[in-house]
Design a protein around this nucleic acid. Structure first.
Lengths: 337, 337
DNA sequence: CTGAAAGCGCTAACAG
DNA sequence: CTGTTAGCGCTTTCAG
């Protein structure tokens, strides 16, 4: 392996100078800098990251923990982070907590042990567990994909108020009154919060019924069973909101198994969007977040924290939007309360 | 940060001994080993990976390049690799080539520069480009998700012959003769190969027409346009095979836009499977690979190569299966040739 | 079986 | 502006 020493010899300078060139230290004469660069080129020299890390105590690596890569929104978030971080010279270590707090804890430990320079975490239900795991290490951490900012740690959050308001307005205007809201049981920060926001907004429209139509599940099969059960009730809902995108397929399957048709028999709105949701027939209405933008904001914030800059705000906000598609229709039959 | 030296002092032994305990070197007396472990626990010592790497010239990291994380099969592959590699003490660096050879090249360079101990690559069209990029470094590399083994580099491949044979048998038995095959233009190794295998198998059943129904595209929009065009022909196909899973939504949208209904008007088979494909209505027939198994095989092979063991076979085979679902039906109208 | 010692390749402080 | 030097924390001989 070619080392800095060989580059120095070839360029006829000392190690220190080569190092300075490598790190863009200003105090190198252009002529010398050029000479060194030529030597680097000729030799095909690439710095040894382990040596750099050992010496500088920085790994130029940042860790990212997401709940689940099986959602296209998460993948877009990962890409957004990757694209934001790479130009800054950082590599990205991605880990999936898979909706399991134990996994989440393990990944946090792993990433800390690997001495990442910064950490981006989309936490599961317990923010305080994350905080406790992360704080002692002192490694800069930013929470992402929250629904509201947290004081414990710097955070990037998505305000879903506006999107939920337009979704509800849409449903109510179309004549829906019995709307079910299903989400996964306390596994992703935000499920419950979304539901509360949704019910609150419904109440603003004078619709207070429906609480009994809400439900939580813990996996795809649970989601399917829950939705089937809801749809078989004598007074079934005319619209369904699915709080977690990953479980939309399960919900759709349940609707089909209940003998109903999306749009015609039951309006559907999903949190999150995907190529599949857009392309299915009928296309699915969605509450959508620009993950790329969210990612950029989060990385900005993380970089600020990493540089020790505590002057700006310690949270950053994105907004989600409601996209109406064919899956939202007026209810066929007005069901009396 | 607590170092090995402090552990040594606390345990009353020398650095070397602590290191030996860390690396499970057999020649440490159990009593001493226990003493050291206690000290490690007490101090909460975690080895510095940079120092370990620098000294041992191994990073305990393996790189994985996949074309695209927006496919659930790829995610399953990533998980399979992750789960296979973690118990062996390796971390995984995942990179997406995003169907772009330039990205692929950059990621290869990046990972090599980061001194990964091994590389797993699901190559795009040019295996030889990958070989050229990887070989000079001498870093053990295994190609994955191929359709046939390669001599240039150790490889894990999926034999799609059996699955394609049962898919074709199914289609032909149902009465289909005009079957279109669309795949993405030379972007993923295997597209063309799949088509050839498919056409060859059709020919074995005496069906030689249909070549003019095949097409390639380069993105979702291209796929949509291609499928619409195919379906508007006077003598349109009665079945459609989509060679790349990611583009299934685009194809479905095209079918809808052409005013046709999956199953009833047009049978559809997709390469690859996903929760969405299973749950849509009608459910999509699929050619499916156990990515987990594929991943395990690939990791096994990589570990063999990394250990310098050249005795076993340098390729490993998985098999895909055909899963018939509702999207395959007999054609409604027999179209005369 | 264990201790001592020599670096791995690089950065940063200090001279000059 | 550039050279010299002292380690960063660890693994791995080599003695004992």
């Amino acid at each position: 392996m070619v080392t800095i020493r060989e580059v120095a010899e070839r360029a006829g300078v000392s190690l220190g100078t080569v190092s300075r060139v490598l790190n863009n230290h200003p105090s190198v004469r252009p002529a010398v800098r050029a000479k060194v660069n030529v030597a680097i080129q000729d030799l095909g020299y690439v710095p040894n990251p382990a040596a750099q890390s050992l010496r500088s105590a920085r790994t130029r690596t940042i860790g990212l923990i997401v709940p689940d890569l099986l959602s296209s929104m998460t993948v877009e978030l990962v890409r957004g982070v990757e694209d934001a971080v790479r130009p800054l010279g950082y590599a990205l270590l991605v880990a999936e907590s898979r909706f399991d707090p134990a996994h989440e804890a393990i990944h946090i430990t792993n990433l800390l042990d690997r001495r990442v320079d910064g950490l981006l975490i989309s936490p599961l239900e317990s923010v305080s567990a994350v905080e406790r795991a992360v704080t002692p290490s002192g490694i800069p951490t930013v929470l992402i994909q929250l629904r509201q900012p947290r004081r414990e740690l710097p955070s990037a959050f998505v305000d879903e108020g506006p999107a939920i308001r337009s979704a509800v307005a849409e449903l109510v205007a179309a004549g829906h009154r019995r709307v079910a809201f299903v989400h996964s049981a306390a596994r992703v920060a935000g499920g419950r919060h979304r539901r509360e926001l949704f019910r609150g907004t419904m109440a603003e429209h004078g619709i207070t019924e429906g609480d009994e139509l809400d439900g939580v599940f813990s996996d795809a099969e649970g989601c399917r069973r829950l939705v089937i059960e809801l749809l078989r009730r004598p007074n079934r809902p005319t619209a369904l909101v699915v709080g977690v995108h990953q479980f939309v397929p399960a919900a759709l399957r349940a609707i089909r198994e209940a003998g109903l048709e999306v749009g015609r028999d039951l309006s559907v709105i999903a949190f999150g969007d995907s190529e599949w949701a857009r392309s299915m027939s009928p296309a699915l209405s969605a509450i959508f977040v620009d993950q790329r933008e969210h990612a950029e904001g989060a990385v900005d914030l993380l970089m600020r924290v990493m540089s020790g800059d505590r002057s700006g705000p310690m949270s950053i906000r994105s907004e989600s939007v409601f996209i109406r598609r064919e899956s939202c229709q007026p209810p066929r039959v007005e069901v009396a309360a």
